[in-house]
């Protein structure tokens, strides 16, 4: 039962029910931080931390939270963790914090975190909820990293800040701006969903 659930957590969050390309959650940050890979990684680490810990906390308190105020409580928990991430970045990684600017604060509004708290943590034990939070954060992260990889490569001719394409390459400015993210995300969803649907069709016949 336990192992089955753990397997489900991985296959759901990373594949079929991925928060970004299946549920299309967390798109605001997907558009905002994926133009340079470095920022994306910090955003992803922040999100994994917040989703994991807020799911854990919500799950620990799930027996006591009155159901009519549960969303307020969840928001409070999420906001506290995000503020902690923000403060810690400012104190120990000031350069990264400056680059991310307001985006760290915007983790609060990332629907994935609230979604996992509501859909999973409220009805599952703490250990599993923590794992679910972390894994759904990973599901979000790898999609963002793929998008960021192509946006930085095409938009700036570089990867992780290092120039990889020669002087002959003309940067596609649109890739650095928000519309580029829409294109990349759409192409990503198209490819992944296409292959998922094919798989399912094969199973049915």
């Amino acid at each position: 039962m336990e192992t089955f659930k753990i397997k489900r957590i991985f296959s759901d969050n990373l594949g079929r029910n991925n928060p970004v390309f299946a549920q299309v959650l967390g798109i605001c940050s997907t558009l905002a931080v994926t133009n340079v890979m470095k920022n994306t990684v910090v955003m992803c680490v922040g999100l994994i931390f917040v989703t994991g810990l807020s799911s854990l906390t919500v799950s620990l308190m799930r027996e006591y939270i009155p159901s009519r105020i549960r969303m307020m409580v969840e928001t409070l928990i999420i906001a506290s963790y995000v503020i902690i991430v923000d403060i810690v970045l400012k104190a120990y990684l000031p350069d990264v914090s400056r680059q991310l600017g307001p985006y760290v604060g915007l983790i609060i509004t990332n629907c994935i975190i609230m979604g996992r708290a509501e859909a999973f943590a409220l009805s599952n034990p703490p250990g599993l909820s923590f794992l679910d939070g972390v894994v759904s954060g990973l599901g979000y992260s790898y999609v963002l990293l793929v998008i960021a990889f192509f946006r930085e490569l095409l938009g700036s001719g570089s990867i992780w800040g290092f120039r990889v394409l020669g002087a002959w390459w003309t940067n596609w400015s649109i890739m650095v701006m928000a519309p580029g993210a829409f294109f990349m995300l759409a192409i990503f969803i198209w490819i992944v969903k296409g292959s998922l649907i094919k798989e399912e069709g094969g199973n049915n016949k």
């Binding site: 009155p66 105020i69 409580v73 409070l76 506290s80 503020i83 902690i84 403060i87």
Partner: peptide, 18 residues
């Protein structure tokens, strides 16, 4: 009453931690 008290206490706890 309980939801109000609960929210009050939990807010106090989290604000203190931050």
């Amino acid at each position: 009453i309980f939801p109000v008290l609960f929210m009050f206490v939990i807010t106090l706890v989290f604000i203190s931690v931050t």
